[in-house]
Design a protein around this nucleic acid. Structure first.
Length: 861
RNA sequence: GCGGGCGUGGUGGAACUGGUAGACGCGCCGGACUCAAAAUCCGGUUCUGGUGACAGAGUGUCGGUUCGAUUCCGACCGCCCGCACCA
């Protein structure tokens, strides 16, 4: 190689910090709260991280994806808002405080400092001036204002609700924290307990949350579907059954059903253990009381529900079916949920599998009232209910009707009789937001014995967390604090107590995107800023947030609109859900997980331990996780290869929505490409500069066409999140630049153009390398980060020659090269000549010519 | 159980509205440079047969529509994900 001076390796360790400083100095990524540049806006946001202490490869992927979009949009003429912050409240900080004698705030802020430094090494085009953590009083104080506004608007309720209670730790557990019916820390059997909790009335917005999904064309279908199922709209009827004799003043039971058409098939009525009638019966009925206690002990976790047999107990009371006037027994059953519908069902064993099992178990009758359409008159059930649509039988005025018609006919009759009505039910439940935790946003409420729950007055906000708390005993430190909770009632001035529960941390992440628009505003949002920047144009994050976070943020946006904090109804116009970063997992002969750096891979595919030399079992490729030790530390990768290599690798191998496997060889491949491009840039920068020739032919023209096709292809790929395809097109362009410096001036010019283009195309993905190349080609000419995206020359995208496939009966028999746009007759003649041997001795029935694509001869022997 | 998605070389994947399947990367093979190795560069790489131009097969399986199917339709097999006593 002649250009030995440029053969030196690319010193990324020096170059990357250099360019990061240059961007910062030029304020390349700074956004205005309310710009007046006249340029269109684009808000790119990645789901902000929890400050655990270290960034992981999932973060690298997430933030690289967002950064590509941000840099690309900036280059194509948008004002871009691309902020970063910290989802900083949560249990791990309390656990750390408990375990290592630190306090949650210090631990969290130290983690933030460490992670900020790591993120900065990645060269992300972030406006760091907007950074905040949700545990900053300036942030959560504004959150308290929003809560009080929601309260004023009737979107907040306080009521008792069933929770998983850990009797040893004296705290509520989330469903995820209950393992096999026991508390994950204490190991104690979890109880179902009723506690007064604060709720946000997300159910008020159920219809809007469902309908709004229609207006999100740039969301993945499956996420919308998951939300749709979660919201769970169902149409049915409420029916009131009269008790044959009143119990404690109760004289009827109302049930919800989606199958009013099967009312004649009733065999029993079942109520939830928490149902008022069940409670009333239990007063006098010890068997029922015992059953209710047993159900409560079972907990509310999904695992507990799943493993439970269908069981029930007869209450001794009966109800009358309004359609046939007959009396049916009322049972308390463990499979009836108080939270859904009315907490009571009518049992129709013939049309519902659960009712069928229950009836079988307790010997209740199973009258047939629905038959499949084509079933004969003696249709009978075997060992399963028939829950499909069919024809109604044995049902008085409904006989002969199809399921659909029978439903409306039944509802009409219920309305006429004054015992029922059509009802739309939702699976979605109100959002319980109380947590008995210290490290969260205090709920700004004061409880007064005389005045009830009172909002904390505006001039006393924010309610900040006390710092002198201890974690040496179970329960909520806020509750134990000697003075914090004791305050005067804002209404009457008498001694009162603060609410010691804190908000579910999902609230913190439900509006941060709005705060980023004006993070220092004295109000929760600055209307001018949110009106300019919202909605987020592109949101990027993991699929694991498909329901909760994204649904809560959508709800918050609608509630904030109602309370005047924003003017949009949906927070995220575009959503992209990335796949996970995975890695092989390793175990030693004793079954202990091993870190990748402890494993030596041998040429034959087997693996041994680096130090002991003992054999290692190569396990499944799984999501990187600490417990399986199959993690790769981004910091180590950046030390070894640089940030650009890490970024390039996570973009290159897979479509971003799929899982990507981190491999050492893949990382090395990416690193080689960085080096190669850098070397090529050196060669081309050192070549003589020439003026643009008047015209291009031959090699030079071909190279220019390739360059401009690369621009078009990469542009399209970036627009559609096909980053792996963009990478492939860039590889192609780089491949065409190899070889010695040519003598031909036109080719020299074309090579320079191609390399210059490459610097721009590569910059969203490998920004430091882009700058490095550009600086070599144009010393002193500024930063790629501030330059426009290249535009493909349309004339160079046009092809003058095409390769045409020639088929016989749809099978490829040859190809011909013809001028583009050649007419049919000419092409067919050329094609016939090209495949003449295949056409001998046959009759051509039909000739098909698709311009610039194929010629196909349909022949008969 | 309900809902959804995906099956393409050794491997990750590409393929516009149906039109040359396997772009590009990884790996592997061969070559150049080197005393040697690393690095780098060049070439090859779906399978089967053939030295070869070439022939046949081929996008989970079976079938259908079509001049032509990875792409559209039907059935099946396998894998993955979400929800789940929601009445």
């Amino acid at each position: 190689m002649s250009d030995t001076a440029d053969n030196a390796r690319y010193d990324f360790a020096a170059a990357e910090p250099h360019w990061q400083a240059a961007w910062e100095q030029a304020a390349c990524f700074k956004a205005e709260d309310v710009p007046n540049s006249g340029r269109p806006k684009y808000y790119v946001l990645e789901m902000f991280p929890y400050p655990s202490g270290k960034i992981h490869m999932g973060h690298v992927r997430n933030y690289t994806l967002g950064d590509v979009v941000a840099r690309y949009k900036r280059a194509t003429g948008f004002d871009v808002l691309h902020p970063m912050g910290w989802d900083a409240f949560g249990l791990p900080a309390e656990n750390a405080a408990r375990q290592r004698k630190t306090d949650p705030a210090s631990w969290t802020y130290a983690n933030i400092a460490a992670m900020r430094a790591e993120l900065k090494r990645m060269g992300l085009s972030l406006d760091w001036a907007r950074e905040f953590a949700t545990c900053d009083p300036e942030y959560y104080g504004q959150q308290q204002k929003i809560f009080l506004d929601f309260w004023k608007a009737g979107l907040v309720e306080r009521r008792a609700s069933a929770v998983n209670w850990d009797p040893v730790d004296n705290t509520v557990l989330a469903n995820e924290q209950v393992i096999d019916g026991r508390g994950w820390l204490s190991g104690a059997l979890v109880e179902k307990k009723f506690l007064a909790q604060w709720f946000l009335k997300i159910t008020d917005f159920a219809p809007e949350l469902l309908a709004g999904l229609q207006d999100l064309p740039r969301w993945p279908e499956r996420v919308k579907l998951m939300q749709e199922n979660w919201i769970g709209r169902s149409e049915g009827a409420e029916v009131t059954f009269t008790l044959t004799a009143p119990v404690d003043g109760l004289d009827g039971v109302t049930v919800y059903t989606t199958r009013p058409d099967t009312l004649f098939g009733m065999s029993f009525l079942a109520i939830a253990p928490e149902h008022p009638l069940a409670q009333a019966v239990a007063v006098h009925n010890e068997e029922a009381a015992a059953f209710i206690r047993a159900c409560a002990a079972h907990g509310t976790s999904e695992a507990a529900i799943e493993s439970a047999e269908k069981e029930g107990v007869f209450t001794g009371v009966s109800v009358v079916n309004p359609f046939n006037g007959q009396a049916f027994p009322v049972w308390i059953a463990n499979f009836v949920l108080m939270e859904y519908g009315t907490g009571a069902i009518f049992g129709c064993p013939c049309g519902d599998q659960r009712d069928f099992e229950f009836a079988r178990k307790y010997g209740l009758p199973i009258p047939i009232v629905v038959a499949p359409k084509d079933a004969g008159p003696d249709f009978a059930l075997e060992d399963k209910a028939f829950d499909g649509d069919g024809v109604i039988v044995n049902s008085g005025f409904l006989n002969g009707l199809a399921t659909r018609q029978a439903k409306s006919a039944a509802i009409a009759r219920l309305v006429e009789m004054g015992v029922g009505k059509a009802v739309v039910n939702w699976r979605l439940r109100d959002w319980g937001i109380s947590r008995q935790r210290y490290w969260g946003c205090p709920i700004p409420v004061i409880h007064c014995e005389d005045c009830g729950a009172q909002p904390v007055p505006a001039d006393q906000l924010p309610v900040t967390l006390p710092q002198d708390v201890t974690f040496d005993r179970p329960g909520n430190p806020l509750d134990h604090h000697p003075t914090w909770k004791h305050v005067a009632c804002p209404a009457c001035g008498k001694p009162a107590t603060r609410e010691t529960d804190t908000f579910d941390t999902f609230i913190d992440s439900s509006w941060y995107f709005a705060r980023f628009c004006a993070p220092h505003a004295q109000t929760p949002t600055d209307l001018a800023a949110v009106n300019h920047w919202l909605p987020v144009d592109q949101y990027v994050g993991g699929i694991e947030h498909a329901i909760l976070h994204l649904l809560y943020a959508r709800f918050f946006t609608k509630a904030m609109q109602k309370t005047g904090h924003v003017n949009v109804t949906e927070p995220f116009a575009g959503l992209f859900t990335q796949g996970m970063v995975t890695h092989e997992s390793y175990k030693d002969s004793e079954g202990n997980w091993l870190y990748p750096e402890e494993v030596q891979k041998d040429a034959d595919g087997s693996a041994t331990h680096v130090t002991t030399g003992l054999p290692v079992t190569v396990g499944r490729i799984e999501k990187m996780s600490k417990s399986k030790r199959n993690t790769v530390d981004p910091g180590v990768i950046i030390d070894r290869f640089g940030a650009d290599t890490a970024r390039w690798f996570v973009l290159s191998d897979n479509p971003p929505e799929r899982d990507v496997e981190w491999t050492e060889t893949g990382a090395q491949g990416a690193f080689r490409f960085v080096q190669r491009v850098h070397r090529l840039a050196g060669v081309i920068a050192a070549a003589p500069r020439v003026a643009a020739p008047a015209s291009f032919t031959g090699e030079a023209k071909k190279l220019r066409q390739l360059t401009h096709r690369a621009i078009a292809a990469v542009t399209e790929a970036l627009d559609t999140f096909a980053f792996n395809v963009a990478v492939a097109r860039i590889y192609e362009l780089a491949g065409a630049l190899a070889g010695p410096t040519p003598a031909d001036e036109a080719l020299l010019w074309a090579r320079f153009e191609a390399m210059d283009t490459l610097a721009h195309l590569v910059a969203p993905m490998m920004p430091h390398l882009g700058e490095e190349i550009f600086a070599r080609l144009h010393p002193g000419a500024g930063l790629v980060a501030q330059r426009s995206w290249p535009v493909a020359d349309k004339a160079l995208l046009e092809v003058d020659e095409v390769t045409l496939a020639v088929q016989v009966n749809g099978k490829l028999r040859g190809t011909i090269i013809v001028p583009a746009g050649n007419d049919s007759e000419a092409n067919i003649a050329l094609a016939a000549a090209a495949v003449s041997t295949s056409l001998q001795g046959v009759t051509i029935v039909k000739r098909i010519h698709v311009p610039d694509r194929i010629v196909n001869f349909v022949v008969k022997a």
